[in-house]
Structures are given as C-alpha cells and as structure tokens.
C-alpha cells in the first residue's frame, strides 16, 4: 500500500502525471463554473445536460466510425446545448413546470443515447470497446493528445469565467439590477449555459456522463458553506474539485478496471457533507452551538 502511494505521488511515470494533472484541472474548472450554476439555482439543469450529452457522443462515433475525441466533444456539445434549449422552450411555451421538463428531457436524451449505444454494440463496430467508459468514466483513458484537448477546454473555461467574473456575480445575486445597469443579461445567460455544457464535456472521459452533474454541483454547494465572499467561494470550490480529481486519478491507478466517476463523486460528497455539518459559521453544528449559547445567555439574563 505504502509503496503504491509513493509510486503514485512521486509522479515518476509520465502517464500518471498526465492523468493526475488532467483530472485535477478538469474537476477544478467544472467546480468553478458550478459555483455560478448553484448560485443561479440551476443545479438540476446541470444534471440534465450531463445525461443529455450521450447521444451526441454516440452520433459522433457513428459518424467517424471510431473513437475520435475532438469529434465526440463537438457532438456532446451540440446535444447538451440542444437539451438546455429544449427545456427552456418547454417551460416557456406550455404549462409544464421546470422540474418535469428537466426530467423528461434527461430521460429521453439518455434513452436515445442508450439506443444508439446498443445499436453500435449490436452492429459489431470493431473499435467500440471503451465507449461504455463514457457512462461511468475512466480517468486512465486520459492519455496522449486527449488530455491536452480536455485541458485546453478546461483552461478556456477558467479564463472566460475570470473575464466575465463581475457580470456573472451580478447576475447571480441581483439580476434585476444587472438589467438596470444595461448588461446584456440574456446573452450572458446564454454564455453561462454554454459554459455549463463545456464543463460537462470536459468530464465525459474521466467522470462519465451519469455522475458529471455532481462534479459541477457538489464542490460548489460545499464551498458555499465556508465563505460569503464570492471570490473565496470560487477558489475553495476549485480546490475541492481538484482534490476529488486527484482521488479519482489515484483510484484509477490502483485499480484500472474500476470506474473513476463514482469515486470522484464520493470524494467530493464527503467534503460536502463535512462542510454542511462542521463548517464554521454556517454548518449545522455551529448553528446549533450558537443557538444553545443564545439560550443560556438569555436564561442567565432573565434568571
């Protein structure tokens, strides 16, 4: 066990270095975007998008006839984006509420993805092996040029968020005010949507489509408990995300056959539950403690 740990953390194998850096970077970047998604109360939309990219991935595979990562990213991007647009369209033009619209789009898109996946499997494409790893993720598959492609997307995400930091913050906390200031709110909303889809796309190899939503939401929800300052929240969220990415890469190194997505999610969920209970100031325990102190204080003064 010790030896494995030393081998892993010495990063002597260049492959490990790539996998670790790649998964930390993509987990951190999606955690950063996630902060704004959670603050805008769109956590469940992230869930819908992450399930909805599957048909795009399969379509790209059918089109190219092999696992072509750049093409798959494009496919995933298109179908994820389409899903968001359709949810918006349904809620705007009918009495269907948002939650139901999200559920319907999620299952229909994912169902379509499964149909295409089984079609690919039953029609004996020679190179289809590994396509299932997109469902639950496999960090060890981040090799060679692919890791560069995903890292570039992750860096682009971070740069865009930093560039529009002020606008996004304003939109998240006070949209009417942002509108009054003359910010192009609907266009910024569109940008945030696009970033959400991009963040999901970065995670499709390492985390898989089913649990990618958690990598957006969970670190951000946890970070919200540690600070009231948006800059700090973003940094903390990125750290939590990076740590989960590291955990996932380590598992992938220890047991290559294991799907890594679930492990990353469990790592970040543990951080989240710890934060919900024990974060100073907002956590349950400290709330309870303060309440008790108030009561004893009152009793002392009255009695």
């Amino acid at each position: 066990m010790m030896q494995v740990l030393i081998d892993f953390f010495s990063f002597s194998d260049p492959n490990i270095r790539y996998v670790v850096l790649g998964s930390m970077l993509l987990a951190a970047s999606s955690a950063i975007v996630g902060v704004f998604i959670v603050l805008k109360k769109k956590a469940l939309i992230g869930d819908a998008v992450s399930h909805s990219v599957l048909p795009g991935i399969c379509a790209a595979f059918l089109f190219a006839g092999s696992k072509n990562i750049p093409l798959m990213i494009v496919g995933a991007f298109i179908s994820g984006w389409l899903a968001i647009v359709m949810i918006d369209f349904i809620t705007r033009h009918s009495k269907i509420k948002k939650d139901a619209a999200i559920s319907i789009i999620l299952t229909v898109f994912f169902g379509l993805g499964i149909v295409m996946l089984t079609y690919i499997q039953h029609n004996g494409y020679a190179s289809q092996s590994g396509l299932e790893s997109f469902i639950f993720g496999n960090a060890a598959a981040l090799i060679g040029n692919d890791v560069i492609v995903f890292s570039v997307i992750a860096v682009v995400l971070v740069v865009i968020v930093i560039a529009f930091f002020k606008e996004f913050t304003l939109m998240a906390f006070d949209e009417p005010y942002a509108k009054t200031l003359g910010l192009p709110v609907s266009r910024l909303e569109l940008l945030l949507t696009t970033l959400t889809v991009l963040a999901v796309v970065t995670g499709i190899t390492a985390v898989g489509v089913v649990l990618m939503a958690a990598m957006l939401i969970t670190p951000a929800a946890a970070a919200r408990f540690w600070s009231d300052n948006i800059r700090k929240i973003v940094v903390i969220s990125a750290c939590f995300g990076a740590f989960s990415g590291l955990a996932g890469a380590f598992i992938s190194y220890m047991a290559p056959a294991m799907p890594t997505g679930p492990w990353m999610v469990v790592a970040s969920s543990c951080i989240a539950f710890f934060s919900f209970f024990f974060a100073p100031g907002r956590g349950s325990v400290s709330l309870w403690w303060r309440k008790r102190q108030h009561i004893t204080d009152l009793n002392r003064r009255v009695g």
Partner: peptide, 26 residues
C-alpha cells in the same frame, strides 16, 4: 435544517448514493 439550497440538496444527495451503489457493484 442545514439550509442547503433545495436543488443542490437533491443533486448532492442522490449522486452520492448512486455513486456508492456503483462502487459497491464494481
């Protein structure tokens, strides 16, 4: 009680439990 935002509470809880299920399965 813990004042987690409603949608985030749902998202965090079920992805966590589902992930545990998948890990146990593998």
């Amino acid at each position: 009680k813990a004042k987690v935002q409603g949608d985030a509470a749902i998202g965090v809880t079920y992805t966590f439990l589902f992930a545990i299920g998948i890990i146990l399965l593998s």
